[in-house]
Nucleic acid binder design. Structure first.
Lengths: 204, 204
DNA sequence: AGATAATACGAGCTTTTGCTCATATTCATT
DNA sequence: AATGAATATGAGCAAAAGCTCGTATTATCT
């Protein structure tokens, strides 16, 4: 039997206090990343801020990066739900509009955290779930575009990449500037997305 | 007399071999950042890769961040020239088009480096030149938009922010995917920018 | 209550980090 | 050739990093 994946959680908490420990670690990691930045993001600090010993941290995470990956997964799960809900809509414009809304709300919830995690995710060795998740969002966009007769024949794969990229660009910058008006930001992203497609936006 | 700025270069090279040392340090820093990532970005490594002793590095840079800042400045200077040239155009659509071209070429020249430096710049304490440079690009966009009668009355400040953000988003993602076709990427960014504005693009 | 498994602890190890400083070498000038 | 300024060196220090492991505590189950 080979060694366990060195970036997967070491063990699953079986008792509720253990679950609390893990949750405290992840939340402490999030707070340090978003408030102090990657330079002060150390395992000793995480444990201290979580009110937990360093030994406990390494009971559940085999390495520092494993904490980061778990945190990425925690945040991504929040977004995934909304994305999947949007996917159920019938009108392709509505699908896109809802996905934009989900992305904007996700980014404005904890802007600094979202930005740092985006960067960390790019830096980390490709994790299988991460790839899945990316292609899931990407796939949802491609699927929505595929339902549009107006866009028949277009390179939907690349369109989807660009739409995702420009959305991320605008929301990242808005978060960095301290914007908090989700509705306004959503309207601007929609304007960008549908403007790029040369299509009228969804009418919600 | 107060201490020198702890992030400014410590001394200016007076001999040509010193200038070569500084150049070697910056290029080594760039290569490490773009190929190995911030985690392996250490002063000892930079000096080793530059073929220079660690002592020499600290003769010219008082701290690690000073190297990063100098590198940011080196890369930014390349972009600044093109941006200023674009600004001289008369037609506002042409100004935007040229600025897009400059941004795209800049990003595709060393994609990974550009991305990391964007992030480092956000993390670093605000340097005066950096602020100037940002507002310079931003100001150039605002100025271009101001020449458009079609956009009279619009919030040009925010438009400029969004245009810059979506451009960065698309070019970053393209660089990350390994795209190399600058003309194609430029066309897509132009489509996004002018689509967002609801305006026909420049006809070059 | 007793036994076992799960959880928590934290001193301290090994390695690496940013950086200094005493010393050596090279250049420019006369 | 001689002198002083500029440049280059790298062993090594103090601090901090990631992480281990033996021990103590708490929960669960019969």
């Amino acid at each position: 039997m080979p060694d366990r994946d060195p970036l997967k959680p070491r063990k699953t908490p079986r008792q509720s206090r253990a679950a609390e420990t893990v949750a405290a670690i992840l939340e402490a990691a999030a707070r340090i990343l978003e408030k102090d930045g990657p330079a002060l993001y150390t395992t000793n600090r995480i444990a201290e801020r979580a009110g937990v010993s360093i030994g406990s941290l390494y009971q559940y995470f085999p390495a520092k990066d494993a904490v980061t990956i778990a945190l990425i997964e925690r945040e991504a799960a929040l977004l995934r739900t909304d994305i999947e809900a949007a996917r159920q809509e019938t009108d392709w414009r509505t699908v896109l509009g809802r996905m934009i809304g989900a992305a904007v709300r996700h980014q404005l919830r904890r802007p600094a955290l979202a930005r740092v995690l985006d960067f960390e995710e790019a830096r980390l060795p490709r994790q299988p779930e991460s790839g899945q998740r990316l292609s899931a969002v990407h796939g949802a966009i491609v699927e929505a575009l595929g339902r549009s007769p107006e866009l028949a024949g277009a390179d939907r794969d690349r369109l989807a990449f660009d739409l995702q990229a420009m959305t991320r660009g605008i929301t990242d910058a808005a978060g960095e500037r301290g914007e908090t008006d989700a509705a306004d930001l959503e309207a601007r992203v929609a304007r960008a997305v549908f403007g790029y497609l040369g299509q009228p936006p969804a009418t919600p």
